[in-house]
Structure formats: C-alpha cells, structure tokens
C-alpha cells in the first residue's frame, strides 16, 4: 500500500515548526496594513500617524531631543530610578524572604501585612507617598522599592519553604551545621524562585517608574509621554510608549539570560 499523503497538513506542520518566522511575518504584516491605512489622503491619515512618520519623528527626537532635553537623558532618568529602587528592593527582599521562609513565627507575624498589601497595585501608593515625601526622586524610588521588595521577598520565602526535606536530611547525615545547611542547600535550592521573583519584580518596577513619572516628574519616559499628550504631540506619545515597551523587553531579556546562566538547573528534575 502506498503511504497516504496530506499535503495541506504537511505544509501547516512545517510552518508550525518555525514560530519565529511566523512572528516576524505577523509584525511585518501589521506594519504593512498600518502603512496602507494611514497613507496620505485617507481618512485615517489625520488621526493616526503612519509608521514612516513615526520613524522620522524618532530620528528627530534622537538628534534634537524632546523639548530641548535629549531622549537619552529621559531614558537615563527612568532607568536610574528603576535600578536604584529595584536593587535596594531586591536585596532587602531576598534577605527578608530568607528569614520569613525559615522562621515560622516571623512568617506568621508578617503574613497579615503581606496578604493585605499584595493585591494593592503599587501605583495606588503614589499619591500617598507624594503626600508624605513630596514629588522628588525619593518618592519614586520608594514606590519602586516597595513593589520589587514585595515580589522578591514573597518568592524567596516560597522558595525556601519549597526546599525538599530530604535534601536537608542528606546534608544532616554528614553533620552539616545550620550555616552549612543554609549556604550549601537551602539558598541554592531556593535560587530559581528568587530569580522568578527578580524577573517579575523588575518588570513591575519598570511599569511603576513610568506610572510615577506620569503623575509627578520633570524627566523620564513617563514624564515625556504625559507632557507630549498634554501638548498634543501625538507622535511623541507613540514613540514614548514604544520605547517603554522596548526597554521592558530588553530588561526581561537580560534577566532571562542571567537566569539561564546562574540557575541552569531551574525547572529540571
């Protein structure tokens, strides 16, 4: 008997095997459709900027900056706030998480606060923090600190609690001290959870910095899009949003690379 062939399905399967090409094609398709709909003379052309116009405007922004301030310094302002808040939040988050994960009494004492605070979006604190500390750098960094701290500490604590008891028992049979148990077993075993917390925490920090700049700032990408919207510089708003997305993507990409290197065993039995 001849083998039966299903040419249509075979083609689909070959396309399925290349998700990246499919993704690239879909992006290109949207740009083509977008360009077509916003070409000069159509009704949409006055309302929505075309991709070509945005690229031109980006070029202008890159050369001349936004309202006299270079694009780079807005970018730098946002990134600095994120990095300071996120770094401090992560370090203290890991330390507090390690304690919570190991000490049931401290965990129980802190549990009500954590469970109450967790569902509150960090953005909701911005007005309160501004009331307390004004609209300076400290307020923005504090909000970023809080959002990353919460995620990193919760994940770290979960990671410590998830350490299988057998791993600890094996080390105990060799006479491991509690210090050795911590550094040789508990901390490395919890690291994949810590990394997950850092990834989410960083994404959240980036979202929060933009939000806090929308509310009160004189610099940063969030300030730029807010200002541009106020003065109806629509193209600059789009470009700002696009850049925010791009940076978010890059930040996540960096952490994914770090994760693959540092916790290579993550997700593997």
């Amino acid at each position: 008997m001849k083998p039966v062939r299903y040419p249509k399905e075979a083609l689909l399967r070959r396309i399925e095997a290349h998700p990246r090409i499919v993704g690239t094609v879909s992006v290109l398709a949207i740009i083509v459709i977008w360009s077509f709909l916003t070409r000069p003379g159509t009704s949409l052309s006055g309302v929505l900027a075309s991709p070509g116009e945005l690229v031109e405007e980006l070029w202008v922004l890159l050369r001349k900056g936004y309202m006299g301030t270079s694009l780079w310094s807005h970018f730098q302002a946002s990134l600095m706030r994120t990095m300071i808040g996120f770094t401090l939040g992560s370090i203290s988050g890991v330390l507090v998480g390690l304690v919570i994960g190991q000490n049931k009494i401290i965990a129980a004492a802190l549990a009500p606060f954590f469970s109450f605070v967790r569902p509150i979006p960090a953005i909701a604190y911005i007005p309160m923090v501004i009331l307390w500390f004004g609209i300076g750098e400290f307020s923005k960094i504090l909000v970023i600190f809080m959002s990353s701290f919460l995620y990193v500490s919760m994940n770290t604590a979960a990671g410590v609690r998830a350490v299988p008891v057998d791993l600890i028992r094996v080390a105990q049979t060799f006479g491991a001290s509690s210090r050795q148990l911590f550094f040789y077993v508990i901390f490395p075993e919890a690291l994949p959870y810590v990394m997950l917390g850092l990834k989410v925490g960083l994404a959240l920090s980036w979202a929060v910095v933009v939000a806090s700049e929308l509310v009160a700032a004189q610099s940063g990408l969030g300030y730029m899009i807010m200002d541009a919207a106020t003065f109806f510089r629509i193209k600059d708003v789009y470009i700002g949003v696009f850049l925010i997305g791009l940076v978010g993507l890059l930040l996540e990409g960096i952490l994914v690379l770090v994760e693959r290197k540092v916790v290579h065993w993550s997700g593997k039995a």
Binding site: P164, D166, R169, V170, T173, F174, G175, P188, E189
Partner: peptide, 28 residues
C-alpha cells in the same frame, strides 16, 4: 540526631541539582 555513622538513600534521590555528579559525591 542524624550523624555521619548513618548514611541515607531516598526514593527521590535527593541530589543537589546545582552540583555536578562528582560534586554531589564530594558533598558530604
């Protein structure tokens, strides 16, 4: 309590995933 005179082997292996095979054997 546990002590080095009694070694254990568990059903789930209880190996340290961040260590190589040799590092696991050297662990104790």
């Amino acid at each position: 309590g546990p002590a080095p005179d009694r070694g254990v082997i568990f059903q789930g292996y209880a190996l340290y995933r961040w260590l190589t095979v040799q590092e696991n054997v050297e662990f104790g």
